[in-house]
């Protein structure tokens, strides 16, 4: 299987370990990753400008489309944004402004010899493992089952909701993350904040609120007697490993861990 790897902007500098472990598990599952000259997915620009964010996504999809490849990303915000933009693009209808926008974008893409036919699909790491590879297939390849540790999951909003756009998993009672963790030997435990936001989207806008949310999540995880908080999203992981915050909250003796690192250790 061959997929275009969309790392997103933050991984390269802020979360190199995610990049490495992601590539490692894909190699072990014999999925070939192709690195293309993608730009930002458009998620950060959504706060400012609809058109910029839409064009950013469409350009990425067109780049992948040029090679007839589907996109896989380990970041949930990139996933959500690309799904959202792809849906928006397909929903553009016969209204004049819709046609104008389409014409404008196609013109801009044509400058770089690009065109998007709308066929590129977007996959997130977790749903790809669950749906395309399959739990049983991964289970067969597990070489060292990890010792039983209690893990709580952080789903990540932008992949989970709105379901009509992302089609990721049941938005109210998701379960693919837990199932994927359980096959590694770690034990996923229930907690109250699994589908709640990590707070990262407003870290710059409202730092206090963002960290307050994080604090409450960490407390809830400790209440659930968890050893790790497991994430499968660049932004969630960055939020949980906010160094400055960790200094303030040493009482929270709980480590954020990337799902790819767990699976990589088990495979």
């Amino acid at each position: 299987m061959k997929l275009a790897y969309f790392p997103g902007c933050k991984i390269n500098f802020y979360l190199k370990e995610y990049d490495l472990s992601f590539k490692s598990i894909m190699k072990k599952l014999s999925v070939e990753l192709v690195e293309l000259p993608f730009n930002c997915c458009g998620y950060p620009a959504r706060d400012n400008d609809f058109e910029i964010s839409l064009f950013s996504s469409i350009r990425n999809l067109a780049i992948a489309g040029q090679y007839n490849l589907d996109i896989i990303t380990p970041c949930k915000c990139c996933y959500g944004q690309l799904q959202y933009a792809s849906l928006q693009w397909k929903q553009l209808g016969d209204k004049t402004e819709d046609k104008n926008l389409k014409q404008k974008f196609n013109g801009l893409l044509a400058r770089e010899n690009l065109f998007w036919d709308g066929n590129t699909k977007i996959k997130h790491l977790l749903s790809f493992l669950y749906n395309a590879i399959g739990i049983s297939q991964i289970q067969k390849r597990i070489k060292n089952r990890l010792p039983e540790k209690r893990v709580v999951t952080q789903y990540g909003c932008h992949a989970l909701r709105p379901f009509s756009v992302t089609g990721f998993d049941n938005p109210h009672v998701p379960q693919i993350f837990e199932e994927l963790i359980n096959i590694t030997g770690y034990k996923s435990v229930e907690w109250s904040k699994s589908t709640e936001c990590c707070g990262n989207p407003i870290l710059k806008r409202n730092r206090n609120l963002s960290l307050k949310i994080l604090d409450s999540k960490l407390s809830a995880a400790i209440e659930a007697k968890a050893d790790y908080i497991c994430t499968a999203c660049t932004h969630c992981q960055i939020q949980y490993s906010e160094l400055e915050f960790q200094k303030e909250c040493t009482k929270h003796n709980i480590t954020p861990i990337l799902f790819t690192q767990i699976l990589d250790a088990a495979l």
Binding site: R46, P162, H172, C197, G199, P201, I202, I213
Partner: peptide
Amino acid sequence: NCLTCYSCQESCPSEIKVTDILIELRQ
């Protein structure tokens, strides 16, 4: 302050795109 977590939009019984509207207000 909106986290853009889409909880409101997912739960709206009238299927109003609450979060999308908040994001557009922000823009």
